[in-house]
Nucleic acid binder design. Structure first.
Length: 255
DNA sequence: ATGGTCGGCAACCGA
């Protein structure tokens, strides 16, 4: 079973790139973030011929998540337990006897802003979401754009970026509290090489200088993590003619 | 050098 996560930065703007990538890599489960499309405008016509099943939740202009699957998708749930009014950042489903939770976590804007407190609190509420609904011994995948680089190895300038909302110690601690519930970062399980990123800012010629961040993650509880045979970042979509600023992360499981 | 570029959507916001 192959699982992938990709922040597409507008599903409609990236439609041909996504369809090409799907056809080439044929993931069994494909989680996308920042679809930036309302449900009524979701490009169903483009995905029907692929044979994928899919579920999605979007809103106008911002956010938006979706899950594509080769197998049946059941028990879909949108949003965190206590906030049905912000549903376009989390979509949960059951596929092939496992639970998948796909999140687009708030970016946070600046450490002085209320948005940063909201981000930190979002992680806290997400931990409660896992505590209330699941056990660490259940097969659970938590994937998506977390907007946090967990370790110094995951950013191009760990000293200079300490004050950034995506590398701030408080943000990393907030992420680690959710991870400590029972997740394994399956990408880091397989590779400890530096310079492996999933995001490069459109500005600054960041891609050419590899000024990147590893913000997109595939986390698995122990029953799944021990069956993870490989994990890698596919940089080729970031080199495309019209790339997203993010690129997919992939994990393979004997499942 | 404290910049720059995207997407959505119709003026800037969010990243």
């Amino acid at each position: 079973m192959k699982v992938a996560s990709f922040n597409v930065n507008s599903l409609r703007a990236r439609l041909s790139l996504v369809l090409r990538w799907l056809a080439e890599h044929q993931p069994d489960i494909f989680a996308v973030q920042e679809t930036k499309v309302q449900d009524v405008d979701f490009p169903t016509d483009a995905f029907e011929p692929t044979g994928y099943k899919y579920v999605f939740k979007g809103q106008k202009s911002y956010n938006g998540v979706a899950i594509f699957s080769r197998s049946e998708i059941t028990n879909v749930k949108l949003g965190l337990n206590d906030e049905p009014k912000d549903p376009a950042r989390l979509i949960k489903a059951e596929i092939n006897g496992l639970v998948i939770v796909n999140t687009y976590i708030p970016q946070g804007y600046s450490t002085e802003s209320e948005k940063f407190r909201y981000k930190l609190n979002w992680f806290s509420r997400l931990r409660s979401f896992f505590e209330k609904g699941f056990k660490p011994t259940d097969p659970v995948l938590w994937v998506g754009d977390f907007n946090v680089a967990p370790q110094p190895i995951d950013v191009y300038d760990p000293e200079g970026l300490l004050g950034h909302v995506c590398f701030h110690p408080e943000a990393r601690k907030a992420l680690s509290r959710v991870v400590q519930w029972g997740f394994v970062d399956v990408f880091r399980m397989h590779s400890h090489q530096p310079g492996q990123y999933t995001f490069w800012d459109y500005r600054l010629n960041s891609l050419g200088r590899n000024l990147g961040w590893r913000l997109d993650h595939i986390m698995a509880t122990q029953p799944l993590a021990k069956k993870c045979t490989a994990s890698y970042i596919d940089k080729t979509p970031r080199l495309a003619e019209k790339p997203s600023d993010h690129t997919p992360v992939v994990a393979e499981f004997d499942w």
